[in-house]
Amino acid sequence: MMKAIVKLYALIPVFSLLIFSGYAQDEFPSQIWHKGNVYGIDGQGVSGLLKYDLDNNLVQMKGDVIQTLTAANVAYFEIFDEVYGGVRKFYSLPYALNGDYEVPVFFEVLTEGDQIALLCREYIATDARNINTMGGMGMNPFFGPQTMMGYRLAFNYYFFKEGAIERYSMKKRDLFEMLPGYEDEISLFMRKNRLEHDKRGDLLRITAYYNELDKN
């Protein structure tokens, strides 16, 4: 299945995994310089400090000057996340992100097999949380809990299969449509391992299990 990606850029990908629970507000991964490598569409790689911007599909390289590259001239880039430890890989793939016209878009590859790959795109979402503010006199009874506006790391997930990228709705019934043919096996696997249909690490395990089933 991933041969379709290889044909796009004439590269042989080697995928690795990083599972992380979240970052502090000032430590979102897209706001940090990471050690990594950038590979152009000609296959040539350059190493350095990288920062990525998935909203605008850009990757920056830090040197004497900061060089900004777009998904149109990058085949893929990889970073080593020093906060959580692990290599993460992002591929530039054609996709109609906003409308019907396909453009190069960066996707992180979480896991892949002969039939299906699980991709994702992270973003920073607003997170409103109720926090009880307790002072020396206690919580103000007239106002009650205070609402603090913060941010959290969130993800959109996609499945790459049959040469096309399909966005996952995060609904359980749609997961079985994305991973057809083994609903009973996947349901049992999820129950035995207490896996959810809408969590990053769980989706990765489910997709990897599906790819193993499909080999038999």
Rank of each mutant, 00 (worst) to 15 (best):
M2C: 03
A4V: 13
A4W: 10
I5R: 09
L8C: 05
L11N: 15
L11E: 13
I12E: 15
F15G: 11
S16G: 12
L18F: 03
I19W: 01
I19R: 10
S21L: 10
A24V: 00
F28M: 12
F28Q: 08
P29E: 09
N37Y: 13
V38R: 05
V38W: 00
I41T: 14
I41Q: 09
Q44D: 06
G45P: 00
S47V: 03
S47T: 11
L49Y: 13
L50W: 01
K51Y: 00
K51S: 14
N56T: 10
N57H: 13
L58N: 00
V59K: 01
G63W: 05
I66R: 11
T70H: 09
A71E: 12
A71T: 08
V74S: 08
F77E: 11
F77A: 07
E78I: 03
D81N: 15
E82V: 12
G86I: 12
L93E: 12
P94Y: 07
Y95T: 04
Y101T: 15
V103Q: 11
V103T: 14
V105Q: 10
F107V: 11
I124Q: 05
I124L: 01
A125F: 03
G135T: 15
M137K: 12
P141Y: 06
F143M: 03
T147G: 02
R152D: 06
R152Y: 07
L153W: 02
A154I: 01
Y157N: 06
K161H: 10
E162D: 15
G163M: 03
G163Q: 07
I165H: 00
R167W: 02
R167Q: 15
S169V: 05
K172C: 01
D174M: 10
M178R: 07
P180R: 14
P180V: 07
Y182M: 01
D184L: 13
F189V: 05
M190W: 08
M190L: 06
M190N: 11
R191A: 14
K192Y: 06
N193T: 04
R194I: 04
R194K: 06
D198G: 03
R200A: 09
R200V: 00
R200Y: 05
L204R: 09
R205A: 11
Y210V: 01
L213N: 06
D214I: 09
